[in-house]
Design a binder for these strands. Structure first.
Length: 303
DNA sequence: AGCTCTTCCTGAAAGC
DNA sequence: TGCTTTCAGGAAGAGC
């Protein structure tokens, strides 16, 4: 699942090989994840790639006119969210493409930027460069840039569970299920704890743990659980360093307690019951943070 | 405000 | 063996 470290790895790869190239054509397979494929087909061909940036989990490919006015009037941003299984890779157009490849951007050097997405939970859209700031303003803060005071202020004013807040892209952008669980473990905080009840040193510990986990994961080029691949089609390695994510039933690397699994804020969550004590969780938690054994099927009241 | 549930989608793996 | 069910999950929207 591409989260901040995976998207950052993809962006760095694209940044090393795309800027300066011109997109000559766009071809689509299925388009149900594209906001306006016709607009993309009309707007993109002929534009030159000037840069590649990451915004949370979004990849922004900056496009400008080949020549003439380089002012914002002519600039556009191609914005891509990889969803669950999206992959952006660059390959020569003569190379075979993978099943579920739905968008091809033909470049002026014989290569193609390809978008592959098995489940099509991703998203693709284009906006004028002039609307970029507004798009960015709708996202939360970057976890690697947010200051300590700002982080504490944002969390201490919220009554939501830590897990829910970490996943809320309008609070922090880029954190997904893997890094939420891993950072809570490192901070020694139970995922169902209510943010406003934490002491300042606990919030500072969470911010530090989040930064550490994300930075280490970027060094390892992200986590490849199943589908994630970088822009060259290569796997990341950080999944080998996960301490709780999908390790339920296995011993904690710190204290040997058995890692547990539960649903918090509607999301699959992994934690160590000893290293991450629950503390006082509000009453509603009985209902909303139910502890369920991980049963692979059955006893599934389908309504 | 915050939570649950549902929807989208496919393939892997468990279940029978 | 082979068909069926379940599950994973990012984000958005409805409803409580």
């Amino acid at each position: 699942m591409p989260e901040l470290p995976e998207v950052e790895t993809v962006v760095r790869g694209l940044r090393s090989s795309l800027p300066g190239r011109r997109i000559d054509e766009v071809r689509f397979g299925k388009t149900d994840f594209v906001d306006d494929p016709v607009l993309i087909s009309e707007r993109i061909p002929g534009l030159k790639i000037s840069g590649v940036e990451r915004l949370g989990k979004f990849i922004c490919i900056e496009l400008g006119a080949e020549s003439v006015s380089e002012n914002s009037e002519a600039g556009h941003c191609l914005i891509i969210h990889l969803g669950m299984t999206g992959q952006l890779t660059v390959a020569h157009s003569s190379e075979p493409f993978k099943l579920h490849t739905h968008v091809f951007f033909g470049l002026d050097d014989g290569r193609e930027l390809r978008y592959t997405d098995i489940r099509r939970f991703g998203r693709m859209l284009t906006i004028p460069a002039s609307q970029f700031a507004e798009f960015k303003s709708r996202l939360g803060k970057e976890p690697l840039e947010i200051g300590a005071e700002e982080f504490c202020a944002d969390f201490s004013s919220r009554r939501a569970r830590l897990k829910a807040l970490l996943l809320d892209q309008s609070v922090l952008c880029g954190v997904g299920n893997i890094y939420a669980d891993e950072s809570l473990f490192r901070a020694g905080l139970h995922p169902a704890r209510i943010a406003e009840k934490l002491k300042k040193d606990q919030l500072l510990a969470l911010r530090a743990a989040l930064r550490d986990v994300l930075e280490e994961a970027i060094v390892s080029r992200g986590s490849s659980i199943s589908d994630y691949r970088d822009s060259e089609g290569k796997r990341g390695n950080f999944q080998l360093k996960h301490r709780v994510y999908r390790r339920d039933g296995k011993p904690c690397v710190v204290c040997k307690s058995i890692i547990r699994w539960m649903i918090v804020a509607g999301r699959s969550t992994h934690f160590c019951p000893t290293c991450q004590p629950a503390g006082r969780i509000r009453k509603a938690s009985k209902k909303t943070a139910k502890l369920k054994p991980r049963v692979k099927s059955k006893n599934k009241k389908s309504k």
